[in-house]
Structure formats: C-alpha cells, structure tokens
Amino acid sequence: MKHDALSSRKLQKNDNTLLNNLVVAAVILITMAILKSSKFFSFTNFQSMAYQLPQYGLMAFAMALAMISGGIDLSIVGMANLSSMIAALMMIKLANLIPNQNLIIYVIIISCLIAILIGLLCGLLNGLLISKIGIPPILATLGSMQLFSGVSIILSKGNAINRLPPLYAKIGNYALFNIVPLPLLIFILLALSVSFMLNKSAYGIKLYMVGSNTKAAKFSGLHVDKIIIQTYCLAGILSSVSGLIMMSRLNSAKSDYGQQYTLQCLLIAILGGVNPQGGHGNISNVMIAILIFQFLSSSINMFPYFSNFYKLLIWGIVLLGVMIWNKYSKSR
C-alpha cells in the first residue's frame, strides 16, 4: 500500500533517543572497562547476560507495544507466570501418562503451544476489557494481573511447581555451537518479527496512529478496537514466551516469580524512548535500552558490597533521570 510508505520512522524524525542511548551504553562499557575490565569483558559474563536478557526483554517489548498504543500493561508478569504454570502442570501430567519416554519431546512442544495459547487468551481478555468494555488500560490490566496471578496461585496452591521433565531444562539451556543460547535466539527472532510488524506492516502504522490520537484514528476509519485487541494479544504472546523461558531457566514455575519485572519493563520502555502518552517509540531503541539495562545490571552485580536492593534505588533514579532528561531535550 502506498499509505504505508509513510513509515513509522517519519513519525519520529526528530527523535534523538537512539543517539542518547548509544552514548549511555558506551559510557557504561567504558566505565566498566576501566573499573573491572577482566571480569566484565569475559566470555562467561557475556554468556550469562545472554541467558538473563531474553526473559525480561520479551516482557519489555510487550510493555512497549501496550505503551505505543497509548495504554500500559501491568499484567505482563501475571500472564507469564500463568502460562508457564499451566505448561508446567501439563508437562508433569502428560509425562506421567505417556508410556514411552521418547515421546516426551512432543509433550513439551504441546505444553509450550498451549502456554502460548493461554498468553494469547489472557491478552485477548485485556484487549476486550479495554476496547469493548472501556476500562482504562491501567485498571483493566491491574485487575487482570490480580486475576491471572490469582489463577496461578489457585492452580499451584501457592507452591512452586518443580520436577519438570529434565529434557525441558536441557532445551532451555541449549546453546547453538555452545555459544548462542537458545533463549537468545528466540528473543532475536521475536524482536525481528515485532520490529518488522511495527515498521513494515499495515498493523504497525495503524498502531502508531491509534496511539498518537485515538479519536482521529477512529474518524479516519480505522478499527481502533481491533488494533487494541491485537496489540494486547501480541503482548500476551510475548509474555507467555518469556514465561516459558523463565520456567526453563529456574526449572520450576511459581505464581510470584519475576515480580520486579513490571517496573523494569516500564523503565526499559521509557529508556527506549517510548512515550507513555502513546504513539511514539520503536523497537530498535527499546532493544538498545534492554542492552543498557543488562549492562548496568551486570555491572552492579560485580560490586559485591552493593546489596541487591540498591538495584531498586538505582532503577528508580535512572527512570526519573531519563524522564527529566527527555523532557528537557524535547523542550529545547
């Protein structure tokens, strides 16, 4: 379509987030090169970063999508835990049923597909509540977060679900050529497809239009409801994949894993230049923000006298600092 030639890049021509973020990333890398060069720039460190990054990276994409549409999704972690919980329960149940242990790979595949379906349904619920019932996104997802984590608490009675088939953790920790972890591959694949959707597909351009001005989008004939529902479904799918990755990393599923990710994802999205009012932000910037976040997080871990709680403090300061910086750089 000719219409699409007006790609999202045009909408954010005067956006210098990319440059800012590259500078920040460079500063962190240089600081670490001076302070802890041998420890930071080691293969093990980068590999452990590659293992940690995908789970919240996918959630950050989900958050960014919801924010581009002008909303917010607080239920990401709830969706991730619910879908991984259901996958875990199914795996254990089915693994006991099947006679031949060679079939266990199919059990895992089916369970994962069902988990993604659950993520889709959760996202659908969010989308319907927001578009058809008209609940403001923050409340709808606040309620559904309670609902989703409530369901996973009920399913597990609040306990962690352990004793997954060993093969599952093996798959999760598999690394291509012993270098590139499988979760990272999945992450890159999904990042590319989300980026493609936003920049090249009709859906993407419509999403930006809905986000920047819902009313104008409605009057120009877009099916706003449909786009919002699609967006939250996509967020649900991304969260459920991230839940599956989290489950393979921890080798268990629990209703309150990853509670801190909601704030982190919001921080990453804002760091990546996604406007909380909607309509702005792109995936490549969010991608760099994810990298910055991971660098920073791994750097903090290298100073043992920082307790883990200092991270909270630092995330908060970074979040506010970035918001204020964006405000000033925009008004100039």
Binding site: L263, L266, L267, F306, S307, N308, F309, Y310, K311, L312, L313, I314, W315, G316, I317, L319, L320, M323
Partner: peptide, 13 residues
C-alpha cells in the same frame, strides 16, 4: 513508580 523503587531501595538497601 520510580520514587517507590527509590524509597524501597533506601529502606532495604
């Protein structure tokens, strides 16, 4: 959200 994180960081860290 940011200040909440900061205050909890001060409290716990």
């Amino acid at each position: 959200l940011g200040t909440q994180s900061i205050f909890m960081g001060i409290l716990q860290g």
